[in-house]
């Protein structure tokens, strides 16, 4: 191995040297100096790539799964048992959660609550984020969080909105079509979804709030689509 090959090896493999590279390193002082720099670089590279991982990532992954099977376990338990006895799999147990449970799970566990601002977000920023998915928002002035998220694998706009009555979560889902309005109470929350544009809109408010209806009305008036 010559010097050029040695250096190429370092840049391809990091500083994990094979036998020929090690042999060259022992005999070449120029490459020893190069190798020292390179080792420093590799250690920086490893640190840079190892970005901090969200603290509760593991528990959130496990939590999210726990939302998935619950809705149909009662309905499918019998069927699954029967299928099992003829050798079919457990797969039916774990069909996708319905949209409303997915929304609630996401609303409760997502980063949005933690990163909600003390001040209303500038409207320009909100418009930019909503506009990224073809949504326009008017007259929801006090938005404390706006970001993109994924619901059932499709991109959505995730918003936290403050009102005099309380805070609610709003999802704008251009790629999540819905046939008709759905409203459910799940785990102390009211989840309302209705068709909007080519997709749908979801609202999550604390259950029993007497402002669910007025909020829904307000949202219906505020949201429009360019797609």
């Amino acid at each position: 191995m010559n010097c050029v090959e040695f250096r190429r090896h370092c840049l391809q493999e990091g500083v994990l040297l094979d036998q020929p590279a090690t042999a060259h390193l022992e005999t070449c002082s120029e490459c020893q100096r190069f190798f020292q720099h390179q080792t420093r670089f590799e250690s920086l590279l490893a640190s840079a790539m190892a970005v901090p991982v969200p603290e509760a990532l593991v528990s959130r992954i496990k939590l999210r799964k726990s939302f998935a099977p619950r809705w149909n376990i009662r309905h499918y338990a019998m069927v699954a048992m029967l299928l099992l006895s003829v050798g079919a799999g457990l797969r039916l147990f774990y069909g996708p959660a319905p949209l409303d449970e997915a929304l609630l799970a996401h609303a409760l566990e997502s980063h949005a609550y933690r990163s909600a601002a003390d001040q209303p977000m500038p409207l320009a920023k909100v418009s930019q984020i909503a506009g990224g998915l073809g949504a326009q928002l008017t007259s929801l002035s006090d938005i404390r969080y706006a970001g993109h998220c994924r619901i059932h694998g499709r991109m959505a706009v995730h918003l936290l909105v403050n009102t005099d009555m309380g805070r609610y979560t709003l999802f704008l889902m251009p790629n999540q079509p819905l046939e008709q309005r759905i409203s459910h109470e799940i785990d102390g929350h009211e989840v309302v979804m209705f068709p909007s544009g080519k997709g749908s809109v979801g609202v999550v408010v604390p259950a029993g709030s007497d402002w669910v209806e007025s909020t829904e009305q307000q949202v219906r008036e505020a949201v429009s689509w360019s797609v």
Binding site: V51, P54, L57, K65, C149, R150
Partner: peptide, 28 residues
Amino acid sequence: YSADLFRYALWLCRHRPMAEDLVQETFL
């Protein structure tokens, strides 16, 4: 594997919330 997957996801999409969503979706 969740930490390494998160890091891989972050360097793919370069957006922390989306990276976490990707990892969530992967494990689902």
